[in-house]
Amino acid sequence: MDAVPGELWELEHALTRIAHLLTRSRRHDHVIAAAGVPVERAAVPLLRLLAETPGPLRPSEIAAALGVEAPHVTRQIQRLERAGYVDRVPDPDDGRAQQVRLLPAGADAVDRVRAVGRRWMVGALAGWEPEERLRLAGLVHRMVDDFTAYSAADCDHYGVSGPPGGPRG
Rank of each mutant, 00 (worst) to 15 (best):
D154S: 12
A105Y: 07
V116E: 11
W120F: 13
R118M: 11
E132D: 09
T148I: 00
D87Q: 11
D91W: 10
I62Q: 02
V37M: 04
A64Q: 14
A35F: 02
Y150Q: 02
A83T: 05
E69Y: 04
P45K: 05
R17K: 06
V37P: 01
A109K: 04
V100T: 12
R48A: 11
V39F: 03
V86E: 03
L46G: 02
E81I: 02
V116Q: 07
R41W: 06
L47P: 03
D93I: 00
P90L: 12
R17M: 06
A149Y: 06
R58N: 07
L136R: 07
V113I: 15
H157L: 14
P38V: 03
A107M: 08
D87G: 07
Q78V: 03
R101Q: 10
L22G: 11
A35S: 04
D146S: 09
L103I: 02
H30Q: 15
L103C: 07
L134D: 06
R118L: 08
T23D: 10
R142L: 13
Q78N: 05
V160S: 13
H157K: 09
E40K: 08
D93P: 02
A115E: 13
P130S: 12
L46D: 00
L47K: 04
A70S: 10
I62R: 00
L66M: 09
